[in-house]
Design a protein around this nucleic acid. Structure first.
Lengths: 177, 177
DNA sequence: GCTAGCATGTAAACGGTTACATGATTAG
DNA sequence: CTAATCATGTAACCGTTTACATGCTAGC
């Protein structure tokens, strides 16, 4: 997932690790910083596969920047990963958002496919807790905090589903023209 | 986080690994299954610390069940972990929800503390993407998918903040009586 | 002089996923 | 008879976190 995000950001424009880090930090979970120990090894892996290449450049301050550029095979890899979320869990919202952030690079029919997949997951939606085998609805749950969870989860899901439906319809319209 | 959830569920009632797994599956990210390779080692760790004890029981079908019971020191550990989310990231929604699921076991002032912490994080909220250093608002963002992310994130945050404020006020009222 | 920000990395420890391994019962 | 569910575990692999390591510049 981290690799996907790196490829995605580099698709926009070449940039060095430090800037990548800032963008990733904003993308994943709103401001949980990406650790260096995750970022730099990930970059090294991508480089080893030939998906990105490094170029030296003088930094604003301090040491040299190593500007990363996406190669052609890197772009292919990005599209490949975006198009096959089967390998990956879309049920997690943060993961889905990573896809969403770079979905514009995919062809329209594949975009619709991803959105539809997420929608069908949300439509299957169920509640958090079970008591004696059956899921617990808001009515039965008397713990206020768990009621809160159910409430927040439900509203959140509603908002997202509405957006997904609208977006899917829009893509279908565009396909007709 | 997995350990916290196990301790939390066992606080309610003793249960065996398989049932724990089902509850955990519903709790974490709505139906992403907890893998056995994560669950059983986690149980073993908790047992090693003396926080849970095992007892054999005949299963419904198949092999014996190993029913887990929370010990006194286990309950202490649970409360300790719930009360100190400093060690843990509350900025992630799933993590916060894990806290929320077991928050009822904490004294009221500490409950309020956790909720307030989460609220202040959300109130600091910023947008996902930066262009040239500044965060990008909905207006500027022309990628429909990223607009969607911003929209969903904003609405979600709104719902959660409203709930948090109401809940904090309620706890404050109760404290006065 | 010192702190914050810029900039890139490595190594150990930890925990999670995936695959492997086993075996019994119940419903179709 | 066969798939699904019940039930518990281990081992290899992989990636993340945390801590360590370095060093420069700009602003207070």
């Amino acid at each position: 997932m981290l690799e996907l995000a790196i490829l995605g950001f580099l698709r926009e424009e070449p940039m060095h690790g430090y800037e990548l880090k800032q963008r990733l930090t904003m993308l994943t979970g709103h401001f949980r910083p990406v650790s260096d120990g995750a970022l730099y090894p990930a970059i090294a892996r991508l480089e080893k596969h030939g998906w990105v290449v490094k170029r030296q450049e003088q930094g604003k301050a301090a040491s040299v920047r190593l500007v990363l550029t996406l190669t052609e095979s890197g772009e292919k890899e990005l599209l490949d990963r975006l198009a096959h979320p089967d390998d990956v869990d879309i049920s997690d919202r943060n993961r889905f958002f990573t896809f969403l952030a770079f979905l514009k690079y995919l062809p329209k029919d594949q975009q619709r496919n991803i959105l539809a997949r997420r929608l069908s997951f949300l439509e299957a939606g169920r509640s958090f807790f079970s008591a004696g085998g059956n899921p617990v609805g808001m009515r039965q749950e008397e713990d206020p905090f768990r009621r809160g969870m159910l409430h927040i989860a439900r509203e959140t899901s509603r908002v997202e589903k509405e957006w997904l439906r609208a977006q899917i319809a829009l893509l279908a319209d565009e396909a007709l023209q």
